[in-house]
């Protein structure tokens, strides 16, 4: 590079001032030459890819956890009861079969609410299957009673309830949502565990990537390391130089990867919004969504931090182990 005369132009003067500052300012002091030796593009890029995967996995994990909770709470808490020939007289007493069934339900202590669906509600439920006017088909419509029970009602009472219902109105159908809801909840829990495992693997691969990059730069700087070591640099000092660099590169990768995942997650959230609104209790859809987004942001913001910690810790361990070849 040709030397510029002092003051010949502003750029030359600036370059000189900068060169002088970097020579004298210890903050820029890079005695191990890590700025060039430490994979400064590859490492953040790979960590960014890991952070991207981690962000998606994390979102999947949070979503599954939410569904699992929803299903767990729902399991066992709701029953649907069909009473065929609802207006026929009950086996005993004066009322109709439907009234007798309702009376049995309302007498049960585990039942919080038992409500017979109106004709209009039934129509709306059946319309997708039967078209606009079921009556015109001449079908005998059962009465449908939805029952909300206290969460965690023991199965024994359910058996007793069935027996009493059958006695009051023979032929009654009791459909417990519990069985399939708890199966769904179990499925969601396994998915959650799988996502956690995937997160662990992603973290492990990130650590491996940092370890490989650190070892490569240790090898590239072997001579400088031996010189610094010979001049009395402690293991803590040398490991700290590498760890500082690894922390910064991994954090940068973590930030880039997490930011890159945001648009993808936003898109997924938009696709999921109508479903979330449907499954959440009426009026709470928006609240649950907001809560999920809040929780997700906190977790996502912790990803670059996690990357930084993985970078620091891995570099510390790798360098200290390597240094043990020197006395």
């Amino acid at each position: 590079m040709p030397r510029r005369r002092f003051g010949s132009n502003a750029g030359g003067w600036w370059a000189m001032a900068k060169a002088r500052a970097s020579r004298l300012r210890p903050a820029r002091f890079d005695e191990l030459g890590l700025k060039r030796a430490f994979a400064q593009r590859l490492l953040p890029l790979l960590v960014a890819a890991m952070a991207f995967l981690a962000a998606l996995t994390l979102a999947a994990m949070l979503a599954t956890a939410g569904l699992a909770r929803h299903w767990r709470e729902g399991a066992g808490a709701s029953l649907t009861i069909q009473v065929p020939a609802p207006e026929a007289p009950a086996a005993s007493g004066g009322g109709s079969r439907a009234d007798a069934a309702l009376a049995v339900l309302r007498a049960d202590r585990s039942v919080l609410e038992a409500r017979r669906l109106s004709g209009a509600e039934l129509d709306r439920l059946l319309r997708p299957w039967l078209g606009a006017a079921p009556e015109t088909l001449g079908l005998a419509m059962p009465a449908v009673i939805t029952v909300r029970r206290a969460a965690g009602s023991p199965g024994a009472t359910e058996e007793g309830l069935r027996a009493r219902l059958a006695a009051a109105a023979p032929g009654v159908l009791v459909e417990a949502a519990g069985a399939w809801l708890s199966r769904l909840a179990a499925l969601a829990r396994s998915l959650e565990a799988l996502a956690a495992l995937a997160l662990l693997i992603v973290g492990g691969v990130a650590a491996l990537v940092v370890a490989i990059a650190t070892r490569a730069s240790l090898a590239a700087r072997r001579e400088a390391l031996e010189i610094i070591h010979g001049l009395g640099a402690s293991d803590a000092y040398i490991a700290g130089r590498f760890a500082g660099r690894a922390t910064w590169l991994a954090a940068a990768g973590g930030i880039v990867g997490t930011l890159a995942a945001l648009p993808v997650l936003a898109l997924l959230a938009r696709l999921a919004a109508p479903v979330a609104a449907l499954t959440a209790p009426a009026g709470q859809g928006l609240m649950t969504m907001a809560g999920a987004v809040m929780a997700a942001s906190v977790w996502l913001a912790s990803l670059p931090l996690a990357a930084a910690i993985i970078g620091w810790l891995t570099a510390q361990i790798t360098v200290r182990r390597w240094l043990h070849r020197l006395p």
Partner: peptide
């Protein structure tokens, strides 16, 4: 200990046969 050796090295000046200078640092550094 390793740490004691590191501290001890700072009290020893060495002129090596092959100098062992850091090529990417200035004479001053």
């Amino acid at each position: 200990s390793r740490h004691a050796l590191a501290l001890l090295r700072r009290r020893i000046g060495v002129v090596f046969q092959d100098f062992r200078l850091l090529g990417h640092l200035s004479v001053f550094d």
